[in-house]
């Protein structure tokens, strides 16, 4: 396991190729925030034939909606939000050139396969560590969709922003690996499959 390797964003092809699920990485450089509402708006714009408000080629998207900064602060609490909600937009984002995403939780199968195809990675940041992560963000500037407030697209300059590689370009998945390594017994002993279930 690589420990705390520093990687510059936007990520180069070589950097992407060198990352493996489970690697702990410190990101330094520029990343862009975008979450549910911004994703929807970007894709709806592209569908109408408009260009995305920022050039997404090679970029890293951070799924975050920060708290407002206190006077003198760059940004408020700024930890990751749950990534699967962006899954329905992610294939399109990868086609537009996005090379890395940062969030928490896992990604759907389709997205994981598309990341292999597009040679893109998904980083996990620690959910619920927004106060700590805030300190690694040195500049923040709204660059699009200001009316969305916390959901606006921001350009962030980060220094040693800590993440872990969850999905690499080779199809490895940290969540699967972690569970396989640490599971102690079969989860279900009863008639699990027959139980009613209202979501996924």
């Amino acid at each position: 396991m690589n420990r705390n390797k520093t990687v510059i964003t936007p990520l180069s092809e070589e950097a992407l190729a060198g990352l493996r699920a489970g690697d702990q990485v410190l990101l330094t450089g520029v990343i862009y925030t975008a979450r549910d509402a911004a994703h929807r708006r970007i894709i709806e714009g592209v569908d109408r034939g408009e260009k995305p408000p920022i050039d997404l080629r090679g970029q890293t998207l951070y799924y975050v909606g920060p708290t407002p900064p206190r006077p003198g602060q760059v940004i408020g609490s700024a930890g990751p939000t749950t990534a699967y909600r962006m899954d329905s937009f992610t294939l399109r984002m990868l086609s537009l050139g996005v090379k890395a995403t940062i969030g928490k939780g896992g990604r759907g199968k389709e997205v994981r396969e598309a990341m292999v195809k597009h040679r893109a990675v998904y980083f996990g940041a620690i959910g619920g560590s927004g106060a700590l992560l805030s300190g690694t963000i040195k500049r923040a500037e709204v660059v699009a969709y200001e009316d969305l407030g916390t959901e606006a697209i921001r350009r962030l300059e980060v220094v040693e922003f800590p993440v872990i590689v969850v999905n690499d370009i080779y199809g490895n998945d940290l969540l699967e690996q972690g569970k396989a390594e640490w599971r102690r017994d079969a989860p279900f002993k009863g008639a699990y499959s027959e139980l009613p279930h209202n979501g996924g």
Binding site: P66, S77, G128, L132
Partner: peptide
């Protein structure tokens, strides 16, 4: 460790523990 460290920073700086308040 990070979660515990985060709680200290939030307390000291009066910044939200998590951005999702």
């Amino acid at each position: 460790d990070v979660i515990l460290q985060n709680s200290q920073i939030a307390r000291e700086k009066q910044i939200a523990l998590c951005q999702d308040t």
